[in-house]
């Protein structure tokens, strides 16, 4: 019998379909259908070896239910602590929703290319996200705060439906107080306690000053936000080479082999999920590509 613990270290040639066992060590309910689970590899050696970059994702596996692609949402400088923020939408995420602390899930990854850490040096960084789209950007926020000297201004624009739907609400408050980062949150529907802005997230652009040439933009949200968000920065004359968008597709293998996540010439799992706008501009506006 071979246990995955005994399998060789990931390198060219091993069979990538075997999931690694990871145990759920903590669960935080973010809103009515979204939870953040903390995972750690059951195997100590695997735990120590696991490295990843902000924006990458894992395939989480529940035996006999299936796999789902979930981005890693914790701090990449502490790579052993793996947080995944999961909204319940399908059978795998529903199965994970029912799992208590101590349960074991399968994990393959990390996959994808992640956010362009190299591109931000000496630039302003503006992150725009909506709903669950904050989860893939959270590691980027951590990274920027950890390496604050790398770039100039850091702005996070976040939109969600109601104040109750905000992910990482406590952390957003903390970041709000933090002088190193500007956080603006807007909601579609305000409650009586809400004193912040109301409306779509692109409206927040009126509240900040974007020095177009010197700004790197990262957008992550539902499809409509990706489009409108990216375009609104282009209208502000941010060069298309400095606009990055994180896309969502159906994924099955994670390494560009199964064909599901193709986006024009790209495999979203392998070449993305983060794309530079200038690399995909010819298909970005097209439907059903």
């Amino acid at each position: 019998m071979i246990t995955p613990a005994a399998r060789p270290e990931p390198h060219c040639g091993h069979d990538t379909w075997y999931p690694l066992a990871a145990r759920i060590t903590n669960v935080v309910q973010e809103n009515f259908n979204t939870r953040t689970i903390t995972l750690e590899m059951v195997d100590q050696a695997q735990r120590n070896d696991y490295q990843w970059r902000p924006g990458q994702f894992n395939m989480l596996y529940v035996p006999s239910v299936g796999e789902a692609a979930i981005s890693i949402s914790s701090d990449s400088d502490k790579p052993q602590v793996l947080e995944h923020t999961i909204r319940t939408v399908g059978s795998v995420t529903r199965a994970i929703e029912h799992m208590p602390v101590g349960s074991v899930v399968g994990l393959r990854g990390p996959f994808g290319e992640g956010w362009p850490i190299e591109a931000i040096e000496g630039k302003d960084v503006v992150m725009m996200c909506g709903g669950i789209g904050l989860a893939p950007l959270r590691p980027m926020v951590y990274w920027l705060l950890n390496h604050r000297e790398m770039c100039r201004r850091v702005v996070l624009l976040y939109g969600c439906r109601t104040p109750e739907d905000r992910l990482y609400a406590d952390e957003l408050e903390q970041w709000h107080e933090d002088p190193r980062i500007d956080v603006l949150v807007t909601v579609d529907n305000a409650t009586s306690q809400w004193v912040g802005p109301v409306g779509v997230v692109t409206n927040l652009l009126r509240r900040i000053k974007v020095s177009a040439r010197e700004t790197v933009v990262m957008v992550c949200g539902p499809r409509i936000l990706n489009r409108v968000g990216a375009w609104s920065f282009l209208q502000l004359h941010v060069p298309p080479e400095q606009v990055y968008v994180s896309l969502e597709r159906n994924m099955n293998c994670g390494f560009g082999r199964c064909g599901h996540c193709q986006y024009g010439p790209k495999f979203v799992c392998r070449d993305g999920p983060v794309f530079r706008y200038s690399d995909i501009h010819d298909i970005f506006a097209k439907e059903e590509v």
Partner: peptide, 12 residues
């Protein structure tokens, strides 16, 4: 291009 990303996977 994929050789540099997630450790180039060849199908066993």
């Amino acid at each position: 291009p994929w050789a540099s990303g997630f450790r180039c996977e060849s199908e066993l």
